[in-house]
Lab assay of single mutants.
Amino acid sequence: GSLMYASIFGNVSAIIQRLYSGTARYHTQMLRVREFIRFHQIPNPLRQRLEEYFQHAWSYTNGIDMNAVLKGFPECLQADICLHLNRSLLQHCKPFRGATKGCLRALAMKFKTTHAPPGDTLVHAGDLLTALYFISRGSIEILRGDVVVAILGKNDIFGEPLNLYARPGKSNGDVRALTYCDLHKIHRDDLLEVLDMYPEFSDHFWSSLEITFNLRDTNMIPGSPGSTELEGGFSRQRKRKLSFRRRTDKDTEQPGEVSALGPGRAGAGPSSRGRPGGPWGESPSSGPSSPESSEDEGPGRSSSPLRLVPFSSPRPPGEPPGGEPLMEDCEKSSDTCNPLSGAFSGVSNIFSFWGDSRGRQYQELPRCPAPTPSLLNIPLSSPGRRPRGDVESRLDALQRQLNRLETRLSADMATVLQLLQRQMTLVPPAYSAVTTPGPGPTSTSPLLPVSPLPTLTLDSLSQVSQFMACEELPPGAPELPQEGPTRRLSLPGQLGALTSQPLHRHGSDPGS
């Protein structure tokens, strides 16, 4: 009898404990919600809404976190579960008819179910419309201010047509639940991603989709105040780019002037030289400038040598048109050559190039014969006009050509200096018209024969001689050997007369 009593008592207590286990969990969670309300000092109306929603959600799901349970299964099984949970929507909604099984599984994985109690606001006026909503159960109302403009029910759709707008718009009203509602919502990016994977279904979906109420604000059109608020930074940046392009296009129409201050000032006329910023005076940081632009901040801005204009002085008759350009485009679109090309026009420029290279940067340069637009006047290309890779490749080509020119210049200078040193070592320090008596009659020769300089066969020296023939050397430049009979510069000019005159010897006659 005691054994029977113990078994009955144990079973009854276990049954009672299981009955009250759900209630215990409910009270535990309710205590957490109330502690949250007390800690954050939530006001009474919002506090009442929180408690009511918790009670309804507990009775609806029995305190089970559906998302946590669903995430515990593998992905393939999750797709089947989501397809079952959203079967009513996918079967009865017209846009989803005719979709393949794979497309429906992908869509079912992207849908999220939302449960809303009465009085809950789903979308506020001015919120971004980031999702498309399908009503599965219940009814909602749409308000503009305090005026109800629409009441939607089961199988209705609200949001915005995503295929017509590249960016999400703003809501033009509040969406509030009238009863307990079940909503299926899919985010904008998720829907577009699935439709991109199934393009054959995309056309059918957009053609058959009928949005019951379009929440997009109709005033959000390009150029409206609301649109400016939504895309303020983007609009200002776009206007700045367009104004920069218009100014650079105007600059290219004036090829007669070359400016070292950047493309923003290349198009300024002579009357605007004294102004601080020219056409860019209202925004000094709008356009890029070269490193020399920092010198323009000092006094005497109108007389600054940074602004270059072609000189009108005539060229000498024998002067060549100019050196070879550094870039391939210089032959086609440049009416002034790079300062480095002028360094190779003569030997005198070679000796004085490194010492006063900055001073020569603004000297007169030889002109190319074609009066085409200036290379320095070409505006900086924006990322939309020329690819970045093209600019980098041009810079690399320019750097390689500069290296080759520097190597060639160093070799030419070394060769010229070597020839000058050899000339100085071969010439005796001094010569006299009267020579010392020699031991015999073989001493009648006034000077030792001097062998002429070897013929220069280097390509670089031939180019130097060509430049010497075309360029007029300055007075202080050293002379180079030329073709024809060679003669030492330090010898007297009348050596031929010395050989014809008898030598005057000093000596005593033994017979006297």
Rank of each mutant, 00 (worst) to 15 (best):
A469G: 12
S235R: 11
S500W: 11
D156M: 06
E160D: 04
S352R: 06
F201M: 09
P441M: 13
N163F: 08
L448M: 13
P454F: 04
G281C: 01
V434G: 11
A397V: 08
P439G: 08
P255H: 09
L420Y: 13
G233F: 06
L192N: 13
F213M: 12
F134V: 06
F344E: 11
R240G: 08
A414L: 05
M220K: 09
P454N: 11
S283I: 08
L209P: 01
V347F: 04
P437M: 11
S304G: 13
G262A: 12
V434A: 12
S374A: 09
L195Q: 03
Q399M: 04
S224L: 12
S313I: 09
S500Y: 11
T444W: 06
I186E: 03
S334T: 06
D356I: 07
R505S: 11
L480Y: 15
D335K: 13
G322N: 13
R273M: 05
Y133L: 03
L326M: 01
G169D: 01
T435K: 13
D296W: 12
T212C: 05
T435I: 12
T228D: 12
M197P: 02
L192Y: 07
D412I: 15
P161C: 07
R273E: 11
D509M: 05
G346P: 04
A268M: 09
G287T: 15
M424F: 07
S312E: 09
T444R: 08
S374M: 08
D396G: 08
D329C: 07
F213R: 03
G346Q: 15
G256V: 08
S286Q: 15
S333K: 15
Q254L: 10
L195G: 03
S313K: 09
T435Q: 10
L456T: 13
P199H: 05
L261Y: 12
P291T: 06
G440P: 13
E479F: 02
L308M: 15
L395I: 08
I140A: 03
Q237H: 12
P474L: 08
V427Y: 09
Y165R: 06
P339R: 13
I186C: 03
A131L: 03
S334M: 12
L365W: 12
D396V: 10
L503F: 01
V194K: 01
E364W: 03
E297H: 04
P199M: 01
D190N: 03
Q418A: 12
R307E: 10
A433R: 14
S272D: 13
E253C: 13
T248G: 09
P452N: 08
S348A: 10
S393Q: 12
S289W: 05
F311D: 14
P454A: 10
L143H: 08
R315D: 12
Y133D: 02
Q482V: 08
V258W: 08
L375N: 06
A343D: 07
S283K: 06
Q363L: 05
R137L: 04
A433H: 10
G346I: 11
P510G: 09
E324N: 15
T228S: 06
R176K: 06
Q399S: 13
I221D: 12
R265V: 11
T415E: 04
E297V: 11
I211A: 02
L448V: 07
A469P: 07
L480E: 06
G496N: 05
R188G: 03
S451R: 10
E141G: 08
I135Y: 01
M220W: 04
T415R: 13
D189T: 10
R386N: 12
E231K: 10
G496P: 13
M220A: 08
R247V: 10
G355Q: 07
L498S: 11
L402C: 04
R408M: 09
N349F: 03
M197W: 06
C337S: 09
P305L: 09
F351E: 04
E141K: 06
F244C: 11
R385P: 13
R422L: 06
G262Q: 14
P446R: 09
T130I: 08
P291V: 05
G438W: 13
T212R: 03
A268K: 07
P339K: 15
